[in-house]
Nucleic acid binder design. Structure first.
Lengths: 153, 153
DNA sequence: CGAATATCAGTGACACTGAAATTA
DNA sequence: CTAATTTCAGTGGCACTGATATTC
């Protein structure tokens, strides 16, 4: 633990994160709106797509870095929209498995299409190498432990 | 405009931004809570502190990258908490100037103190150079024009 | 008159907490 | 019995839109 952390720089980066995040969220939401999806729903869909098998609610929550209760609400929404479905876990009757429906998979494909426009506006200023560097740095940051237990929004 | 934008990579970075942002917001909010401040209020305070003269609501909005109406609400809150105050702009009677009160400046100092703890948890995995690189990349990203007009949250 | 500035009122998206039910 | 998984109900933070009054 380095003594000499540059707090001013970190405050600045924090500011920048807030700015960048909202910009990305706005830009992405605009593209997703015609599909009837919100930013967070799009995120959840992508997570579900990464597994080809249905996963537990708790697992989804962990991947989205939100509390399980919030994941339940998200699944409620996706289910109502016909994009995901719950099934009982045969091996553990406490848990519920969530997976994409065919409709969910279809929408996911259209989502990728839709995002192309905003992508340029949001990341166009970074060249391939910069984008790659950014990706790696974020990866390091996010690898940090639960450190700050969820619960302060 | 490069034809070969790596959309998969951008989607991934978008995910990472969401994760990182919420972590930072949670960690910072936890430190700010004892001071009676939220994350966004802290942000606003910092912006106001950067100018030594009171600024217009519109200017504050631009710095926070939010719409003016939202900045009005933010100022209402800060004013009620006694951290900022409005004064009429003598040179343009349409506009209102906002500046920190002494209480606001005092709290700002305590804010910097309070943040030290979470800073380690949030950014501790990055060394000085990485943090600096991150700062520069975010700066490039955020320099992008209003591109995606606010309004999709 | 048209553009800019701030405000009023209402809405939407979204994560959180605490408590309770079910099952390991 | 304790721990894990999910759900129920309510809350809070926070940005957005549309419309309106002043003033430039």
């Amino acid at each position: 633990m380095p003594e000499s952390i540059n707090h001013e720089l970190m405050s600045r980066v924090t500011e920048q994160f807030a700015t960048a995040f909202w910009r990305i969220r706005r830009g992405t939401a605009k593209e997703l709106r015609p599909l009837g999806l919100t930013f967070s729903q799009g995120r959840a869909l992508r997570v579900l797509a990464r597994f080809d098998e249905p996963i537990r609610i708790g697992e989804l929550a962990a991947r989205l870095d939100i509390v399980p209760r919030s994941a339940t609400a998200m699944v409620d929404t996706l289910e109502k929209a016909g994009l995901a479905s719950r099934t009982a876990d045969p091996s553990d009757r406490r848990s519920v498995l969530v997976g994409l429906t065919d409709g969910g998979r279809a929408l996911l494909a259209r989502m990728a299409e839709a995002r192309r426009e905003s992508a340029e506006a949001l990341f166009g200023r970074l060249d391939a190498e910069q984008l790659s560097t950014l990706q790696k740095l974020l990866d390091v940051m996010n690898a940090a432990e639960p450190a700050c237990g969820k619960g302060e929004a």
